[in-house]
Design a protein around this nucleic acid. Structure first.
Lengths: 250, 250
DNA sequence: CGTCGTGTTGAACTCAGTCAAGCCAGGTGG
DNA sequence: CCACCTGGCTTGACTGAGTTCAACACGACG
C-alpha cells in the first residue's frame, strides 16, 4: 500500500464492474453495460493530493471514482477551506456535469485514485435518451440535496462531539453499502485536518474530540483504521436513528 | 397589513402570472400557461405560522408560493431547529416532490401566504412529457445543490458577522430578482430567532451582531425594513463577489 | 540521522451561548 | 382612555466550547 506500489485497482470492463449497481448511468443489465463501455473514453490513475477538478474550469469529461477516496471542497478568500463531501468508490464527479459544463467547487484526491473517464456530452445524451437513467439521475440529485440538508443541520445545530460521531458513522454506513467496510471498522485516509475542514472545526479540536470518544469507548483508532466500538451510542450521539440514513440510501 | 385584513394576494390566472418566469413548470409561452392552468387544483391562503408541510407526511399536492414568505426546516431530537432555507414568492415546495411523495423537512409560513395548488402526479407527468421543463427542473435542482454548498461553507467557515451579512445580502438579491425589493432595502418578516436558526446562532447573539452592523453603518433597521447602507462592504464581509451569486441565479 | 507530516498536549484567549432583567410597541380588555 | 399583557428586542454579567499559539512526540522516508 505504499506510495510507489501500483495499488490503485483498475476496472477491466463495465460488464463485470462491481460498482454497477452504484453508478447512475447504466440500468445494470449486461447489454446496457456493453453499450456503456463504448462511451468510456478510458481510465485514469492519479496520485493522492492530485487536483481532479478546479472550481470554474470548463469540463469536457465526466468522471466516476472507481477506486480510492476524494473530496469536494470550496476555498474562500482568506484561504479557509470547506470540505463539502467525501467521495467514495462509485461516486461521480458530479451529476451536475450532466447539465452544466462548470462546477462551483473543486475536487481533490485523498488517496491514489482511478477514474473512469467519459465524454461529458456523449454521456449526457446517452442518459437523456433513456428515461430510466434520467429518473435515476434525478433520484440521486434529490439524495444529494437531502444529504446537504443533513449536513447543514449538523453544522448549524450540533456540537463538535456530535458532528465527529456523525461523520464517522456516515462514512461507515456508506462504505458498508459498497462492501468496503469490515465488521465494525474501516480504513480511512482522512487526516484530522480533513475532518476539521468538513465539520467546521480546527484539527487541534478534532484531535481532542477523538481522544474523548476513544476514552468513552465509542471508537477506536489503530493507524488508519477507525473502529466503531459502540454503534448504538454513536447513533444516539449523532442523531441518526431519529430518522435514519436508511432513507437517505434508498 | 394587520392580521384580519385580506392582505394576501391571490393569482387570477396563470397566463398573466407575474411569477411565470420564476416557476419551473411552464415554458413561459401563453399557450403553455393556458394548459397549465388546467392542472391547477386551486389556490389556498394560510395564516402566518401555519404548517404547510410536515416532515415525512405523504404529499399528494405540489405547492408554489405565490405570495408571502415561508421556510424549510428540520427539528432534531432535543427540539433544536435548523432552518434550511427561506422561501420567497415564486419558489416551490419542492422540486423534490416531482420524484418523491415524501420530504425530509417541514415547511412553515412566516407571513400569511397564498399557494397555488397542483395535483402532484398530474404535474409530474406534465413535466416529464416536456423535455424543456425537465431540463429546467434539473437546472433548478442543480442550483439548489449549489446553494446548499454555499450555505454549508457559510456555517462551517464564516463568523457570525459574516453569516448575518451574507444572509441579508442574499435575501436582498433574491427579492430584487422578483421585483420585491426597493432601491436599497426590503421588508422582512423574519424574527431574530429565525435568523439565528438559519445561521446556527442564538437570537441573543443575532441581536448583538445586528447592533454591530448598524453601528458600523453597513445596515439600517426600521421596523420590519432592512436597509443595505453599504452594499460593497456587505459583499466583502459575506464573501460574495469572489465568485458571486451572479452565477447562482443563472 | 535529519526532516517532514501528522497528531498530541497545555495555556491563554475569544467568540458565541446562557441566564436573567428590563424595555418597547401593539393589541386587548376593563 | 388607561392598564395590562404579550412577543420580540436589548443589554449585562457570566460561562463555556472551540481557537490559537507553541512545544513536543512519533513514525515514515530519504
Amino acid at each position: 500500500m505504499s506510495k510507489d506500489s501500483a495499488s490503485a485497482r483498475v476496472p477491466s470492463d463495465c460488464k463485470s464492474c462491481a460498482l454497477r449497481p452504484m453508478v447512475f448511468y447504466t440500468t445494470g443489465t449486461p447489454e446496457e453495460a456493453a453499450g456503456l463501455a463504448k462511451l468510456r473514453r478510458g481510465v485514469r490513475v492519479l496520485p493522492a493530493r492530485a487536483t481532479i477538478y478546479r472550481e470554474g474550469d470548463l469540463a469536457t469529461e465526466f468522471h466516476t471514482l472507481f477506486d480510492g477516496w476524494a473530496f469536494r471542497y470550496k476555498l474562500i478568500a482568506d484561504g479557509r477551506r470547506q470540505i463539502l463531501s467525501f467521495l467514495l468508490p462509485g461516486d461521480s464527479i458530479s451529476y451536475q456535469l450532466m447539465r452544466s459544463d462548470r462546477l462551483r467547487f473543486s475536487v481533490q484526491a485523498l488517496t491514489e485514485v482511478s477514474l473512469c473517464v467519459f465524454e461529458r456530452e456523449a454521456l449526457s445524451r446517452h442518459v437523456a435518451e433513456r428515461p430510466v437513467l434520467t429518473s435515476r439521475l434525478d433520484h440521486l440529485a434529490a439524495q444529494e440535496i437531502a444529504a446537504a440538508d443533513d449536513r447543514l443541520t449538523d453544522l448549524g445545530q450540533r456540537s463538535a462531539h456530535e458532528r465527529v460521531a456523525s461523520l464517522i458513522l456516515q462514512l461507515y454506513l456508506r462504505l458498508q453499502q459498497r462492501n468496503l467496510a469490515d465488521e465494525d471498522s474501516f480504513v480511512s485516509p482522512l487526516r484530522q485536518q480533513h475532518i476539521g475542514d468538513a465539520l467546521g472545526l480546527t484539527s487541534v479540536h478534532v484531535s481532542r474530540v477523538l481522544k474523548d470518544l476513544r476514552a468513552e469507548g465509542l471508537i477506536g483508532v489503530d493507524h488508519e483504521r477507525l473502529i466503531l466500538r459502540d454503534q448504538p451510542m454513536l447513533r444516539k450521539l449523532s442523531g441518526i436513528g431519529d430518522r435514519g440514513l436508511d432513507e437517505q440510501f434508498h
